[in-house]
Amino acid sequence: MKEIQIHTLFGAALLSGIAGILLIGHGISIGIVFLWLPFLSAANSIRGMAMYGLGTGNASIGYWGTAVGATSAFVVSLSVSCRSTPLLYVAAVVAISLVIGLATGILADKVIRMRIPRIELNSAVIAMSTAMITAGSLLILGSDYGLYPFIYIIITLAVLHPYNASTGAGENQKRTLLLALVEACMTTLVIGIVAMLASRSSIPVSGDVAIVAASACGLVIAVVAWYRLVKSDIYEIRWTGYPPAEH
């Protein structure tokens, strides 16, 4: 089966992510669904790096990439406002994460000599994708610093987990990316619920309800699609039983 190239997926994720941030910046919270593609793109690049026998390093790649992306977005949010200059905000998020992502990738390749093919490209893609997701989440959750650790760690797990969960001889890109979509929907669902609490109003804000509703619908559709693939890929599914005796 032909795999989706990094460039194609990231190109789509970049356009979709920018559209998502601008929509959220204009008060249309449902634009968070456009951030699902950056989740897929980041998970795909983690797959691209971790496939070269990193094993337990998978989590570290996710940690590292999201740290670069989230930090870039946090720094931009401190100095540029999305409300007054939305285009500058998006441009700054993308540019800063690109520069730092590339720089860490080149350092890992040239100085630490990790010998992973295309590490610079993948590192930049993970950083930019997670920076866009972080920027969108920050716009939804507001500027309470207490929420930064939550935003960072929930995005980290959602991007590092799909490949880590699917590792094995029978892993394929399609199932890994579908799992990434499941987890992207799950993450935006949780962000929507936390946004309801963070808004501090006695009845939930309609924008936050829309996020939760859209994410829940996406989650159901993605889980059904993913499980269909699991059933076609797996050796056998049973309610109970013993493995055939070998020794």
Partner: peptide, 17 residues
């Protein structure tokens, strides 16, 4: 579920229980 789905070649069954 995902890990076991990737274990097809080694005949690992997914037991729900």
């Amino acid at each position: 579920i995902s890990r076991i789905a990737s274990m097809k070649n080694f005949e690992q069954t997914l037991y729900w229980d």
